[in-house]
Structures are given as C-alpha cells and as structure tokens.
Amino acid sequence: MKRYLPQKVVHFFNSEPASGIILMVTAVLGIWLANSAMADNYFSTLSSYVAGLSILHWINDGLMAIFFLYVGLEVKRELLTGELSSNQKRLLPCLAAMAGVMVPALIYLAFNYDDPQQIRGWAVPAATDIAFALGVLALLGSRVPTSLKVFLTALAIIDDLIAIVVIALFYTAQIQSLYLALAAGTLIALILLNRNNVMRSLPYAILGVFMWWFVLKSGIHATLAGVALALTLPMSGTCQTPDNAPLLKWEHGLSPWVAFLIVPIFGFANAGVSFAGLSWSQLGHPVVLGIAAGLFLGKQLGIFGLVWLTVKFGLVNKPERASWPQIYGVAMLCGIGFTMSLFIGALAFTDPAVQDLAKIGVFTGSVLAAVLGYLILLLSAKENQ
C-alpha cells in the first residue's frame, strides 16, 4: 500500500477539487484552534510582530498580494486570449457577476441601513470564492456540462475584478501622497519595461516588491499592488519562444503556491473565530443575517434572475447543454463567499467583535450555498440522464 501512496498524493493534488478541500480543512483547523485549549497561542501568534508588521498583517497584506497578483494574471489572460476575449463571451458572465454583486449588497443594506458602522460591510456578501465554488463543481465531474464550468470560471474572475475595484474605492485609508507618487512612478517603470519588450522576470519582480512597499505605506491596500504588477507583465513571448511570455510563466509558476499554500494559510489565519460567549441571539444580529442572506439568497437571485431574463429576452444564449436547474445550482454555488468575503470583512470592520459576527455570517451563507448548490446539481444531473 505504501508504494502507491506517493502516486495517490500526486493524483489528489492534480485533481480539480484539491485546492477547495485543502482550504476547507485549514479553515476548520483554524476554527478548532480558536475554540481549543490552544486558542491563546493561536491568537497571540497571529498578533505577534515580525519586521514591523503582525503575522496576520503579513498574511493579509503580503501573501494576499501574491494571491491578487495571480488573480490579475488570470484576468489579463482571460481578457486577451481566454473566455473573456470577445464582447460576446464577456456579456453573460459580466452581467451575471454585476447582478451577483448588487443584489447581495442590497440585501445586506436592508438589514443594516440604520447603522453607519455596519453599513461598511455591504461588500462582504458580494464576493464569490472561486476555489471553493469550482472545487464543489469539480466533485460532480462530467455530470455538469463543460459550458457551465466555463461560465462559473468567467463569472468568478469578473467577480474578483469587481471586488478589487471595490477595495480600491471603498476600503482605502488616508492617502500618503509621497508614497502614492512613488508607487505611481514604479508602475510607470513597469509599463516601460513592457513597452520595451523586456522578457526577463527579475526586473518586474524587483520593481513589484518596491511598488508593494510604496502602496502599503500610501494607505491604499497593499494587495492592489499585485494586480497592478500583473497587468504590466507581457502576454506575448519572443518570436523564437512565443510560449515564454512572463505572464504565462508567472501564472503557471504561482498556481500551486496560491492554491495549496497562500490561500490555505489565509483561511487558517482568518477563519479562527471564538464561539465562547456566543449566544443564539447573536445569530440574529443584522451583520450575521445580512451577510448570510446576501450570500445564500442574494447571489442566487441576482445571478439566476439575470441569466433567465437575458435569455428570455434573446440578449444572450443559455450555456450549451445546460438545463435551468443546473444553471440555478451554479448560481447557488456562487454564494460561497469564504476567502474574498473574509478578506473584505477584515477591511470593513475594525471592531474584533463585529469581525467575528461577519465571519459567522460568511460561514453560514457559504455552507448553505455549497451544500444546497451541490445537491441541486446532483439531482438535476440524475434527471437529465
């Protein structure tokens, strides 16, 4: 049995659901530690300082900058050569993503409109966790048509792009002009490297690190530096080696690190919420209800409603070979907010108690969306057989 173990491990890490499963395991581990005898060690470790920043800060502003770099690379590739490379391909996932952002936000505001501090969390239920959603979809294998997987991927990428814009516009602290100017100068230098067809990765990496530091000090969230760097990387290689483009090399190289290290570490560090002293009444808190209802109800209503209307009015075609129940199941899966929702929640709220309430709302809405979305797709696949 031992001789086959390495092959099984390799097979697992090469499987589509692997990243989502590992993220789920690390998140559960974080929750367990936060409610165990080791809770003090867990929280004190995350709050301890290294080189001027807490470990949690390094994770959320440092490692997640690499995550956003990867997202930016993915977005640029899809816009230039992938599933978002033409207006016809962009229309349905773009409209669905916008509806999937607005409806959850409105539902959250309906619960929290009368509290100026809680209103800041309107974007928490607006995000979709691409790793989790695609991981659940992958568990169904060939029972789900390829067109739906493409639709979900494109929708989630646009969703991430909207989340990046939201973070830049609504969750930016006071601006430090000098550092912002330095960051802008570094960005111009990166653009010049691209314009001069510089294909070596090292200059981009060095300038990217400087830009990250300048953006961090400027007051804008440091993760946006990752997106800016991604957009400057050349997509085309040389005539002799067309596949040697820095963007493609970086995306391929970062993929396993992001999926199996960076995102799980983020989940482990940010999912930890202590349930000590939690009462049932707190589950009815407007923040919890707004986020949970936004993810579970808002996503499915916004996305499925938009797809149904645009197809009925003849504006777009329904994903090929996909039934309406299957489209509804995918819309439900988009309610898995987890990584991005936790990330925005940490930016939206400064009070640790409210941050914990936001996490509970994210867990509740995401779990409901994952379980029911999976069951709907499973049952609809059996009906189509």
Rank of each mutant, 00 (worst) to 15 (best):
H11L: 11
N14F: 00
T26R: 02
G30W: 00
I31D: 01
L33R: 11
A34L: 06
A37P: 02
S48W: 08
L63M: 15
L69P: 09
L84R: 13
K89R: 15
P93C: 09
A97T: 12
A97L: 05
A99M: 09
G100F: 03
L109V: 11
P116L: 10
W122T: 05
A123E: 09
V124N: 08
A126T: 13
S147T: 05
F151G: 03
A163M: 06
A163D: 11
A173C: 00
A173M: 06
L180H: 03
N196G: 00
G208P: 13
V215S: 05
L216E: 13
S218P: 03
G219V: 07
H221Q: 09
A225R: 06
T238D: 14
D243R: 15
W257P: 06
P264G: 10
P264N: 15
G267I: 01
A271D: 00
S274T: 14
G277L: 12
L283S: 05
G298H: 08
K299Y: 10
F304D: 02
G305F: 07
W308F: 14
V316I: 14
R321C: 03
F343W: 03
L347V: 00
T350V: 02
V354C: 04
I360V: 15
V367T: 12
L368S: 12
Y374C: 04
L377N: 14
